[in-house]
Write a protein that binds this DNA or RNA. Sequence first.
RNA 1: GGCCCUAUCGUCUAACGGUUAGGACGGAGCCUUCUCAAGGCUUAAAUCAGGGUUCGAUUCCCUGUAGGGUCACCA
Length: 453
Amino acid sequence: MSKIITRFPPSPTGYLHIGRARTALFNYLFTQNKKGEMVFRIEDTDKERSKKEFEDIIIETLSWLGIHYDSGPFRQSERTDTYKTYLHKMIESGHAYISKETEGANPEVVRFKNPNKKIQFTDLIRGEIIFDTTDLGDFIIARSINDPLYHLAVVVDDFEMGITHILRGEDGISNTPRQILIQEAIGAPRPVYAHIPLILAPDKSKLSGRHGAVSTTEYRDKGYLPEAIVNYLALLGWNPGTDQEIFTMQELIEQFDITKVQKSGAMFNLIKLNWVNKEHLKKMSEGDFRAGVESRLPEEMKTREKFSEIFSKLIPIIKERISFFGEVDDMVQTGELDYYFSAPVFSTDESKASISPPEKMRKDKIVTNESTAKILEQIVSTISSMPDLDFSQEKIKEALWPFAEEQGRGIVLWPMRYSLSGKEKSPDPFTLASILGKIETISRLKNAIEAIL
RNA sequence: GGCCCUAUCGUCUAACGGUUAGGACGGAGCCUUCUCAAGGCUUAAAUCAGGGUUCGAUUCCCUGUAGGGUCACCA
């Protein structure tokens, strides 16, 4: 069996669309699984819309995703001589002809002499597909003898580059008969086709710009992990037939089977992507996770006193709260991290009142500012007697738990937590205290006592 | 509209022609130290419709319906 050669041929007219990223991924997985090679080709025959900067971004994005190619990039814009040769041959052999036009930009174009036959081909995913090419007419394959169009360029390149398998989006199905016709005209062997279903937007139409983030770089910028994007994209339209959902690239390569790819389109679901990303976050090394979070923090925060000490203790808390690094931005914006670095200020009556536990936690107890202050004083005295070196979440809990049980958990835990954080939602008070340290904890508790009296 | 593709829980999907139609995400409920998060347990939720073929259709065939793709001197 000869070597499998695939290709990924984007046109550099925009960022790498998430759907094209998946097509690239499927090509990569298929190729690696079969120990073949993948050709990377830039389809820039449209000089108007093609831009070098987009080419660079596409290359960079593929690399970020971990999708590697074995040869290229080849640019169609640099291969016009080759296309010209084929064009001449086709005209000589009667497979194409120069046609005078009354409409369009060019007065003379090259048209393909359509034999008007039925074309049947096998699709690895869909089975037999048959078209009557009569409907196509004598379609145009070049603007002029020097200026080839997509279909001609693709077929010539795929032939010359020895492409054996073409895996592309489902929107390429209707291009296939026309390309097969050209293949037959130039004597090229027919590659094996597999048309991958489209990625759908929530309204079930083809995913496009108006549906939000479609460029792969947007996900990178939001702090999604490339391995999670790859994992999620692979699952969109394919699965190994087992219950496994979290994969490394290597596992995907080993298990990928193009014939098990779904026939119907798959809706892009951000919620599930978030879950997949979180699963990959859990698998990250401590150091990598730390760096990922830190890159999202404002410089101002990093210059705070005892930043790295506190930040280190914050890592597990942040880890269980985010699905992707971009959510750290939200934590920063909503002030969810501020209270670790600076004490809450209880200046208004409202914030003072919030130190006392809410009604529903009081059970039958009457709670007043004075009684809450007493509770807080008791906490201060218990904590004060603890050895400095043992100020861990477990030890603090151990020391205070009997008191909390005795008084009613909410009666003790709420004011303690609120005094330390100034927030109605936060990690538990023992964790908070252990992060802040003994001195700061006592200081904040005393501050709260003062505020409510 | 022509041509082509497709059709299982809300979503992603599993099921040699024989299963109580399975899993995951999300939802709901409960539990787990006060709140939040995380975690655990439980639960609701689907074979587009109608005809065939068959002892037996999610599965095979036909029709309908619905959705999508494509119909450029774009790729």
